[in-house]
Simulated scan of single mutants.
Amino acid sequence: MTVTVANSERVVLITGCSAGGIGHHLALELAAHGCRVFAGVRTLSKAQTLADNARIEAVELDVTSNESVEAALAHVLAATGGRIDMLVNNAGVLCAGPAVEVPLAQVQQVFETNVVGLARLCRAVAPVMMERRQGTIVNVGSVSGYVATPWIGLYAASKAAAHAYSDALRMELAPFGISVVVVAPGSVRSNLVANHNELLAGDYTSRYQLARPAIEARTGLSQNDDTTPVNLFARVIVPQLLRKSPSAYITYGAHSAAAWFLYYVPPVIRDYLLGRRFGTHQLAKDLPSVAACPFSGKKAGGGAGCPMSGKSGTVSCPITSPTAMWLVLGAAVVGGVSALFK
């Protein structure tokens, strides 16, 4: 469907509008508020549910491709007489799993989409707004950008980067009358988790296999019953975006208050609380010890006991302490000397 744009209507370009996601519902809500919306999707078939809305036109748009961005932008500008009043950078992918075991190809994918793709759209659209001395750029971050938790460290890093980029952009574009807003969702039920790659599947061998239940629970945290429905999230956020002077940060959704609290908590306390919540403390208990007895050469894990203490598991051998070691060596020397003079 081709959208006819009146001069009095706001023109909005949104990325990542596949059915069921945050961008999809933001598009519907912005259209309900009288905006003309161009909903970007990588595959047009993923926007079929938007096709019946007279204020929304689906546009093929892949944020990781310069050619795709240029083609989509040219289409929007031709249809609107050369203007875009609001850009919503919503496209994003989740990256879940132990940070040191995520394949580099996936690390590159998450940053290419969540950071480079965001910057690519800003570079393309900002000059249009700067020429007209008005506009709003909305970058969708996450409360994970405030506080990283175990098992989604790289996703959190990409969102923290988006926040920092937005902070600089806000100051640089202010002289041109352009507002830059970070929307940081809490736990919102959307299609983001359904589209992520599972790192511990199949034959993948991981040192974190014992933590697999904790990793899966963290990955699916936003899909629990106590999280915020995506349509409610859109209804709350859109009126704030349409204000004449929107806030620099808009945070909403389940668990967002906890994230704000943890942001100001000293790291030692934050690590303890998050470690207990997301399984790293339990993993420390479940992992077998790898410390070897200096006398037998046997490792303490797997039930092998220390020949000196008779203890097993993660209990350290008493001989490994400096004081005990000197006492043992001293006793050995005394015993050896005594044997010579017998």
Rank of each mutant, 00 (worst) to 15 (best):
V3E: 11
V3F: 07
T4D: 04
T4H: 14
V5T: 06
E9Y: 09
S45L: 12
A54H: 12
L61I: 01
E67K: 14
A71Q: 10
H75I: 03
I84D: 08
A91T: 07
C95K: 01
G97F: 00
V110Q: 02
F111G: 05
V116Q: 04
L121E: 11
C122K: 13
R123M: 13
M130R: 11
R132C: 01
Q134I: 08
Q134C: 12
Q134P: 00
G135D: 06
S144I: 10
V147I: 09
W151M: 03
I152G: 07
A174N: 06
G177Y: 10
V180N: 04
V182Y: 13
L192M: 05
A211L: 06
P213A: 04
I215D: 07
G220E: 02
D225E: 05
T228D: 00
P229V: 13
A234T: 02
I237W: 02
I237E: 09
P246E: 02
S247P: 15
A248P: 15
Y249R: 07
G253I: 01
A258K: 13
Y263W: 15
Y264P: 02
D271R: 05
G275M: 11
P288Y: 00
A291V: 12
S312A: 08
V315L: 09
P318N: 02
P318R: 07
P318E: 00
A324E: 15
M325N: 04
G336P: 14
V337P: 14
